[in-house]
């Protein structure tokens, strides 16, 4: 696998100095293409206190295709699809915006920043985005509730 070297390099970097509030490990030690990211809800966000699992899947033609991020922990967020996939796909994670010189850790950091500041203009869940824009109190209430219910235990 031609890209293995690069992935291993990135993995060792990110395990040595992970983005704040995250831990990165392989889901299965024998497969470097699937990472598991454990992300604490950022203190300045409504998700504080939650512990979210994100599965990062690296395509076989990585780094020429973007990594796929999906929240395996259910989360109430305009940029995360509210289904069993929990996928997040915007910004640098889009295949037409992805750059081969991007790092996976940058993608993880972007996900964390989105927990702090959701991007309602580029939402995958339009109704949650509407609520986020027009009825912030209700949005925060549900988000906190879901965090407690689904992301409570570490």
């Amino acid at each position: 696998m031609a890209n293995r070297k690069r992935i291993v390099k990135e993995l060792s970097d990110v395990t040595r100095s992970p983005p704040p509030g995250t831990r990165v490990q392989l889901l299965d030690e024998s497969d470097v293409h699937i990472w598991e990211v454990l992300m604490d809800g950022p203190p300045e966000s409504v998700y504080v206190g939650g512990h979210f699992k994100i599965k990062v899947t690296l395509p076989t033609d990585y780094p020429f295709k973007p990594p796929l991020l999906s929240f395996t922990t259910k989360i109430y967020h305009p940029n995360v699809s509210n289904d069993d996939k929990g996928s997040m796909c915007l910004g640098m994670l889009r295949s037409d915006e992805w750059k081969p010189a991007n790092r996976i850790s940058a993608a993880i950091e972007m996900a964390r920043n989105l927990l702090i500041a959701p991007n309602a203009d580029d939402a995958v869940e339009v109704s949650i985005a509407d609520q986020f824009k027009n009825d912030r109190a209700e949005f925060e209430k549900i988000a906190k509730d879901w965090t407690k219910r689904y992301a409570g235990k570490a």
């Binding site: 973007p66 295949s95 037409d96």
Partner: peptide, 10 residues
């Protein structure tokens, strides 16, 4: 450059 040169599919 970031928009028109560097992206993987561009």
């Amino acid at each position: 450059c970031s928009r028109n040169i560097e992206p993987a599919v561009c």
